[in-house]
Amino acid sequence: MQRVNMIMAESPGLITICLLGYLLSAECTVFLDHENANKILNRPKRYNSGKLEEFVQGNLERECMEEKCSFEEAREVFENTERTTEFWKQYVDGDQCESNPCLNGGSCKDDINSYECWCPFGFEGKNCELDVTCNIKNGRCEQFCKNSADNKVVCSCTEGYRLAENQKSCEPAVPFPCGRVSVSQTSKLTRAETVFPDVDYVNSTEAETILDNITQSTQSFNDFTRVVGGEDAKPGQFPWQVVLNGKVDAFCGGSIVNEKWIVTAAHCVETGVKITVVAGEHNIEETEHTEQKRNVIRIIPHHNYNAAINKYNHDIALLELDEPLVLNSYVTPICIADKEYTNIFLKFGSGYVSGWGRVFHKGRSALVLQYLRVPLVDRATCLRSTKFTIYNNMFCAGFHEGGRDSCQGDSGGPHVTEVEGTSFLTGIISWGEECAMKGKYGIYTKVSRYVNWIKEKTKLT
Rank of each mutant, 00 (worst) to 15 (best):
I429S: 14
A279Y: 01
V174H: 06
K260H: 06
A149H: 11
D131E: 07
G246F: 05
Q216T: 10
Y341L: 06
N48T: 14
C407R: 05
I428D: 00
K311I: 07
T215C: 04
V353R: 09
T190N: 06
N222C: 05
N113P: 04
T81S: 08
R404W: 15
V331Q: 00
D410A: 08
F87A: 15
I7H: 15
G403S: 15
V263D: 01
C155K: 01
E270K: 13
R191A: 12
G246N: 09
N59H: 10
K188T: 05
W453A: 00
E340T: 11
K387E: 11
N80R: 09
G272S: 10
E231K: 09
V326W: 06
L346F: 05
T426N: 01
R191P: 15
E116P: 00
C435P: 03
D150M: 11
G229N: 07
H314D: 05
A164G: 10
E320R: 02
N343I: 03
F144R: 01
K387V: 05
C396R: 02
Q96D: 15
T133M: 13
E259N: 06
L23N: 02
A337C: 02
E124P: 02
C119H: 00
A436T: 15
D111R: 04
G398P: 03
N203E: 09
Y22R: 03
N452W: 05
Q90C: 04
E285M: 08
F238V: 05
P101G: 01
C170A: 01
E286L: 11
E401N: 09
Y312M: 10
Q219W: 09
C108F: 01
G427K: 00
C102S: 00
T290S: 11
S365K: 13
V326S: 12
I136Q: 12
N59L: 05
L52I: 15
E231G: 10
H302N: 04
E142A: 06
S430L: 13
R358W: 06
N59F: 07
V77K: 11
V202L: 13
C119L: 00
P177D: 00
P175D: 05
Y352N: 06
C178P: 02
Y312T: 03
H289W: 11
E171T: 09
E434V: 10
G236N: 06
K274H: 12
N306L: 05
G229A: 13
K188W: 10
Q167M: 13
F348E: 15
L425M: 03
C108Q: 01
I336Q: 01
P301L: 12
R180F: 04
E286H: 10
C28R: 03
K457Q: 08
Y450R: 01
N306A: 07
K311C: 03
V419R: 05
D315Y: 01
P239Y: 01
T81P: 12
L130Y: 12
Q408I: 14
K446G: 09
C141N: 01
E340V: 13
I428H: 03
N100L: 07
V277I: 13
S182G: 11
A233Q: 06
E165S: 12
I429T: 12
W453N: 01
N213R: 10
I210R: 09
E420A: 15
S25G: 10
W261V: 02
G403A: 09
D95W: 05
E53M: 08
E193S: 12
G236W: 05
C141Q: 00
R294Y: 01
K347R: 13
R226I: 10
D232Y: 15
G349V: 02
C18Q: 04
V154S: 10
C252I: 01
L325H: 00
S114E: 11
E420M: 13
D110Q: 12
V277D: 01
Q237Y: 11
S49C: 04
H314F: 07
G351Q: 03
R384E: 11
T84I: 04
L376N: 04
A164Y: 03
K387T: 11
E73F: 05
N310F: 04
G421C: 02
E82M: 08
N258C: 02
C28D: 03
R373T: 08
F224M: 13
C18I: 14
K39M: 11
R364W: 05
D93T: 15
G246R: 05
D150A: 11
A380I: 09
E171Y: 09
L41I: 11
G280C: 01
S350T: 14
I390Y: 14
L321A: 01
V257H: 00
G50V: 07
N306R: 10
E61H: 09
C28H: 03
F123D: 00
P235M: 08
E434F: 12
S49F: 08
E72P: 14
R75W: 04
A380N: 09
I429M: 14
E53I: 08
T417C: 03
G58W: 06
V242P: 00
K126M: 06
N295V: 08
A266W: 02
T81E: 12
A192G: 11
L318W: 00
E35T: 13
Q96I: 08
V277W: 00
N38R: 11
V248W: 08
V195A: 15
N5G: 15
A308M: 10
D95L: 06
G13H: 06
K339Q: 14
S184D: 15
I428K: 01
Q2L: 15
Q90I: 10
P324T: 03
G229L: 08
F71H: 06
R384D: 08
T29V: 14
W240E: 00
P301F: 11
S217T: 12
T209Y: 09
P12T: 14
Y115M: 01
N135D: 14
H400K: 12
V248A: 07
K440L: 03
F144C: 00
K457N: 15
E142F: 04
F78P: 15
P333M: 02
D212H: 09
F78E: 15
W431I: 07
V183R: 09
A26Y: 06
L369C: 03
N310V: 03
V273C: 06
A37G: 15
C69K: 04
N127G: 02
